[in-house]
Write a protein that binds this DNA or RNA. Structure first.
Lengths: 229, 229, 229, 229
DNA sequence: CATGAATGAGGCTTCATTCAT
DNA sequence: CATGAATGAAGCCTCATTCAT
């Protein structure tokens, strides 16, 4: 016998769940990362974040304080996650070259699965206020530091083997290569989107082929210089 | 009784210049690029642009129609300028390798001198409305197309020479390398800002050393593959 | 296996006291008076009151119904206390003049010790809703009534003694003097704050010197009138 | 022949007048004083001020910056006006006693006609933020300073004539009397509202009768002291 | 041609109040 | 009895855009 008094507006959708703060907070951040990623910090609207998180706007402010605080919290969380993924993979990568490979592969894998995270960290318009600018700069620095560390180790590892004409590469070069690598990787996340058949590992192999071989050969003394004039 | 201090409008400051439309328009775009670059599209305020251009707000609307139109005009102009600089240099570069070098050097030189231009083109938050998104995508595509063309020519140029173990590289690979190059170059504009002693040419040489040598050797059959697992 | 750190709710801090309703209520009112006094009715926030009272917000609503109810309760309690202090002192003051003196001294003493109380009663912005406005008006009237009564008695006491040129003072005059006295006293509470060395009794003597002597002499026929024009 | 095309919605009420900034600014302040006076700073709503001024809200912000700025501007203007009225009258008042009389009469006259002005200056809830608190304090100090000055002059003027038992009154006493006077005057503005038949001059005479005669006699040596215990 | 004056619409934030446990 | 979780309603402020001169 079917219940007659089944409430007509029985939306199983919004049971107004009562969740503990810590859980809700994470859900809010999840929603915020999605929206900030889709629209950018300024164009993002707190209402949309709240709606996507399935709560009302005041909860966002109760838990995160302000739109700026919300954004900063997103950046911190996503930055930590990305760095953790990178470092964890690298730590299991064996020799320096393997570590760099593993780290980059983890990076491409992570970004492929959490595109929003990367967009929030690296695709925001400049100068949105001091705290935001600082937080973004810190996040980007921490990514760059990881990569620079691995490149540096790779150089040190490959360096001693270099023969007579070997080029001496130092810290500045590691930084340079790291910048190039991170920038290339960033840009390649777009490429990946248009080539869904390419796995993160395949992309990593392609990138290593171009950049690592280049670097390795430079270390080995093969120097390119401007053709003539 | 004659009034002595009669001054109808003799402010020697701000002579209320009567300029031809085309000149005015360029001045407005100059101001707009500065402001959009500093703040990003959303955070930029039309008042600030008008003030920086030395005119009143209605003039901006009279000439460019809307904030969106203003931004689109900026993107078009800056994109055209950048591509022109790139292509012009490349056209005078001689053989494919020299063309790529010249193009990249021109790029770094242009960005070093017109940072705002690059920021407007490549550092805007996503999804600011369809027309803007489309215009930005077009601008980025046109840059990418230039680079891809040169890379492709370079591959074709180096390819036939490749010996037995040579790898066959195609259009997809050129696109991949172009993405990596553009991304690396973008990221390196940041690196350049912190290394003002490095000339655009020096940066180009560094980048060619890493990426072009890598590519050349890949073409020559030196393939990197994941160490073991 | 017994859990060792089993602690159901043993926070020695904040023992979650189970207090009888009447006590709780008074504690809430204490906190409310502090906060209303510091911020004013509108700027006061219920959260702050609850926190200061050491309980949760719903308790405030359970006990006092609403912010407005809370404020009204504060006004009633503080008004009653002030009037009681005044009347008690006056009742022990002997002759009319002594009663006025004692009442005023009690007033200054009370306000010196319970500044918040006075601020809540007399320093609120106008028109915060009908009930509040009414309650405040009533409180102020009750203070005024006390003073008017004493002034009236003082006039009646001194009046009959007045000689030939004596001025006839009536109810309207008592009201006038009472207003002047209360206003002066209010303003002098500020003066007292900047002169902490002056005891409430000293302030009362000063005030009596100026106002009572003035009134007494007026009763005795010394009338001031505008110099000439 | 009557014009047929007389616009149907010809509200002579809101012709959307185009006024120069300085005029509009004053109109906004007029409206703001009314609303702040009626509701108090916190309860006042900017929309209501804008509506009363016959403009839209953004104009208020364009001209006055913020609600706080608007309030501060009100306080400054009203304070200046009141002090001007007071000082002007006093300056024409002849001897010290006449000056005090004239100043007080001007005060009561001003407040009777511009009640809002006084309410904005003296009936705001405490602690609405540092700038507001500071501005109000300054305004009140400036009023008090005027009165203190006159009282001081009055004391100096009457002092030398005092006979043997004369009491020495100093700066602190002038301040005390000024506080009492201003407080009494404030309170009496309420009394006046309920006694519309009493002219400002009449109120002034009453107040002088009580307070000035009191003070004069104190100067002459008539000291009141607490009856007995 | 040029501008000072003006506004509709929308976003961030707060707060009194209530529910579910 | 007591509270952590939650929200509707409202207020401040900004900004792209237009009008009248």
């Amino acid at each position: 016998m079917a219940r007659v008094t089944d409430k007509p507006d029985d939306k199983p959708d919004k049971p107004r769940r009562r969740l503990p703060r810590s859980v809700r907070e994470q859900e809010i951040l999840d929603a915020a990362v999605r929206v900030f990623s889709k629209r950018g910090y300024r164009a993002a609207v707190v209402d949309e974040i709240a709606e996507l998180a399935g709560i009302s706007k005041p909860m966002v402010y109760l838990y995160l304080g302000s739109k700026e605080g919300l954004f900063v919290a997103c950046v911190r969380r996503e930055s930590a996650r990305l760095v953790a993924a990178f470092r964890e993979a690298a730590d299991a990568g064996g020799p320096p070259e393997g570590r760099l490979w593993a780290g980059l592969a983890a990076f491409f894998g992570y970004v492929a699965e959490h595109r929003d995270s990367w967009v929030v960290l690296h695709r925001q318009a400049p100068e949105q206020g001091d705290e935001i600018a600082g937080e973004l700069a810190a996040a980007r620095r921490s990514v760059m530091a990881e990569v620079t560390g691995l490149v540096d180790a790779g150089i040190a590892d490959a360096g001693p083997d270099a023969g007579g004409g070997a080029v001496r590469l130092g810290a500045q070069d590691a930084e340079f290569v790291a910048h190039a690598l991170v920038g290339a990787a960033d840009s390649l996340t777009d490429w990946m989107e248009r080539h869904p058949d390419e796995s993160p590992e395949a992309v990593t192999v392609r990138l290593m082929n171009v950049m690592w071989i280049g670097m390795r050969n430079v270390l080995a003394g093969e120097v390119w210089s401007r053709p003539e004039g």
